[in-house]
Design a protein around this nucleic acid. Structure first.
Lengths: 228, 228
DNA sequence: AAGTTTGGTGACAGTTATGTGACGCCGCGC
DNA sequence: GCGCGGCGTCACATAACTGTCACCAAACTT
């Protein structure tokens, strides 16, 4: 699954531009226009990285950063701040407050891409890693293969992305909505129950060799991949 | 596909000269004028080898080298440093930091070519090798011949380059766009589906002797050559 | 224990991606 | 100018995958 970027920026023109280009670059993108919306979307969409403008209405960028850092779930969420030229003091405060990197406006798109990728790699190596193993299941993103105890498993594209996503956070429970957002994309509309069907298909495929089901159903909450 | 060299050099005159000559020698070349650009281009273009001037604005050569070595994906990326006469200390630090070779300015072009090729051969044998074998398929770049289990296979130029590229990263899945970029060149415009047709032709040619198809289709992702 | 909610799953019809034969175009050697 | 080998596109057939639904079972509630 592609990394998910939350862009927090109040200027429409810039946020549109960022969204367009990041999507083209293969990222999933959510947009927030102010600090409140940002906090909400962080919660709801669980982005992998936040690109945060420093000048924001309502809650300032620095405050958003502080709040994210003070909450357990988002303590390690990578943050890249956008500052206007010359806001030197902010930049320093930003890094103090826990931003992972900053970039000065105006900037080149490819510079942003590079930093987003760099931060992802540094903070959450798993995301950029070529292959991940959880228990007896290994997924290789480059070769696009899944192996369970030496047996190759064939998955359709959606099942592959679904498993990939679950494997990035083993043990964690995801609601159907979260999975739809992450795996299907926040822009398409499909029934939540569709997730059930795909989970079912994934289970069947993963259990083809007689092994036991690695996916846990959490009633009225969602699904999780068993950590070990 | 020809090896891809990233030249990091801040003097325009020298970088132009290097670019011109390396291209004439059959390498693909990218140019970076400083350390930041270098890091960006490494990420973006994924060169096969870096020729790195030691005196650079912004990020020094030594720092570039250190960063490349500290990142998983570039740990083994070959680096050849360019040092001015007498910068003995730098040279040692350079090799310490993980450069693979160094060359003292001023130097002869063919000396540079030789070192680039040597380093490529040492670090990534496949790229500089005259012939490569994957499973029962052998490709001879010099003679432009392909052999599968002792049977010679005739391929057109495009199919040859396509197979050559796939054989450089066996098992890895490439999107149609990646293949177009790598095999057709990023400047020509052809339909993505054209890749399918050529894959089809390649398959037919490779299976002429009754062997089974060595190319794997990954639905909605692309194609890969089976590793073994 | 009956009622209610939630999850599992086979079936199905629609959609999308891929395989492939056919065709016309082009550059080249003769 | 002609024939030939390659190339890029297209159209069509086919295979693979998808989202929904209906219906049943399991898990909770009261």
């Amino acid at each position: 699954m592609q990394p998910h970027v939350l862009v927090v920026e109040d200027e429409d023109a810039l946020s549109e531009l960022l969204s367009y280009n990041l999507k083209k670059e293969g990222f999933r993108v959510s947009l927030a226009a102010d600090g409140e919306e940002a906090m909400m979307l962080v919660e709801e969409r669980q982005p992998d990285v936040v690109v945060l403008d420093w000048m924001l209405p309502k809650i300032s960028g620095i405050e958003v950063c502080r709040r994210l850092r003070s909450r357990h779930e988002t303590r390690n969420l990578p943050i890249i701040m956008l500052t206007a030229r010359g806001e030197e003091a902010d930049r320093i405060r930003g890094l103090d407050t826990g931003a992972d990197d900053y970039i000065v406006k105006p900037f080149l798109m490819k510079e942003l891409f590079a930093r987003v990728r760099a931060v992802l790699r540094r903070i959450r190596p798993g995301l950029a890693e070529d292959s991940v193993t959880v228990g007896d299941i290994t997924i290789d993103r480059v070769a696009h293969r899944v192996v369970r105890s030496d047996l190759e498993i064939h998955l359709g594209p959606t099942e592959f992305r679904l498993l990939d996503y679950l494997m990035q956070h083993p043990g964690r429970v995801f609601s159907r909505e979260q999975l739809l957002d992450a795996v299907w994309g926040s822009d398409v509309y499909v029934e939540a129950r569709t997730v059930d069907v795909h989970i079912g298909r994934l289970r069947k495929a993963l259990s083809a060799g007689g092994e036991h089901d690695p996916i846990r159903t959490v009633r009225s909450a969602g699904y999780a991949l068993n950590a070990a």
